[in-house]
Design a protein around this nucleic acid. Structure first.
Length: 375
DNA sequence: TGTATTTGACCGGG
DNA sequence: CCCGGTCAAATACA
């Protein structure tokens, strides 16, 4: 963490690590080639490698681009955001002169729209139980409050806008957009923006101990992961597996995205069962998964960092919650540029076209990854 | 009564 | 000017 916090903007060393990571991924690919890994997976892995190097290139370019920029739009956790004008907190906590309220509002609006552009952004695809057909907030471990809904041009279904419930209380700027996929009604595209400055305290604890209860009844029922309820004993293990599955699935689909050129959000299916938990213990696993793939790459870069400018180059699967945590630690990386992180998970193995993956987590690696080291 | 959702209006960017 | 994103009053709900 300190490692990164020191890298307020760009660090050649990080680039080197990125490249090294690429190399290691190549090795992994080689290893997988000799095993049972599906050709698809190997291919996606290869694509991932490609994207890794693309990122490296991008990073260099970005560095030049960002040379003029100063600070990330929001600060990391340890430093309370210097309450930008847009900060709800400022609206709440700081006595804003009420006389010129309108003026302030206008200013705020501008600031907000400016800053929002720079907020980290990543997307999920959430698959819900077919038949459940309920527009769901898709609980991901955070409490969201809907503040708008909009019909989107060309989309069959309206897009829902959610912001963190603690926005006012804690100035959490995290927002998300949920939109049902046109092609597959059981899939929701969830775009997250901003990190949860409120998270990882309450949510974490809650998630850690009651992953299932965390989801509302309706939401819970939507998720294909009925096994969550029925197989709670194996919950953790399943989650870990799911995470793995998710990752592979992501890779796969994302690769497709790569193939297509730029598909920011057209990704794979995603499920939340693991997502909420992403904040808690399983996120260990998750990270381990990441670590498995990315090895110390993840140790070196935040996912956000991996997606310097935009979507086109992101093929990392990260739990939103995790993500927020990560970005928390790496704001300086993410903040500068808008990015889209493609995150996806699979709600259930049943939903996953790629259940058996050759992507096996090594216990050693698993244990080796210690979040505490990370932060 | 307090909180969450709905929904039409508003605003800014492209 | 259009469209996406947000606001905020009205409404629903517990």
């Amino acid at each position: 963490m300190a490692k990164y916090s020191s890298a307020a903007s760009w660090d050649p060393n990080l680039l080197v690590e990125l490249l090294i990571n690429g190399e290691e991924q190549v090795k992994k690919l080689e290893a997988n080639l000799g095993e049972q890994a599906s050709p698809e997976f190997c291919r996606t892995l290869a694509q991932n490698i490609e994207s890794t190097f693309k990122k490296a290139i991008k990073m260099v370019k970005l560095r030049d681009q960002d040379a003029g920029h100063v600070l990330p739009p929001f600060c990391s956790n340890n430093t309370t955001p210097s309450l930008s004008p847009e900060s709800p907190l400022s609206a709440n906590a700081s006595p804003r002169s009420e006389t010129s309220d309108r003026v302030f509002k206008d200013q705020e609006r501008r600031e907000i729209s400016k800053k929002r552009k720079t907020l980290p952004k990543w997307s999920n695809q959430v698959r819900v139980n077919p038949g459940a057909g309920i527009e769901a907030p898709l609980d991901d471990g955070h409490s969201w409050r809907k503040y708008g809904q909009k019909d989107i041009l060309g989309a069959k279904h309206p897009r829902g806008y959610y912001r963190c419930t603690h926005r006012n209380a804690r100035g959490c700027l995290a927002t998300k957009q949920v939109q049902r996929s046109d092609s597959d009604p059981t899939i929701f595209d969830v775009v997250y923006r901003g990190e949860h400055t409120c998270s990882c305290e309450k949510p974490l604890g809650a998630v850690a101990h009651a992953p299932a209860s965390q989801q509302t009844g309706t939401q819970q029922s939507q998720y294909v992961a009925g096994e969550h309820q029925k197989q709670q004993q194996q919950q953790q293990q399943q989650q870990e597996n799911q995470l793995l599955l998710n990752f592979q699935t992501n890779l796969k689909v994302k690769t497709e995205g790569l193939d297509m050129g730029k598909h920011e959000h057209d990704v794979s299916s995603f499920s939340f069962p693991s997502t909420p938990i992403g904040c808690s213990q399983p996120r260990h696993s998750f990270f381990a998964n990441q670590a498995n793939l990315d090895n110390h790459f993840m140790d070196s870069f935040s996912p956000t960092f991996l997606s310097p400018t935009t979507s086109e180059s992101n093929y990392f699967s990260v739990s939103p919650c995790r993500m927020s945590n990560l970005s928390t630690g790496f704001n300086h990386h993410t903040a500068e540029s808008e990015f889209t992180e493609i995150i996806s998970s699979v709600t259930s193995a049943a939903n996953s076209p790629v259940v058996d993956m050759g992507f096996i987590l090594d216990a050693g690696e698993f244990d080796a990854f210690d979040p505490s080291n990370f932060f």
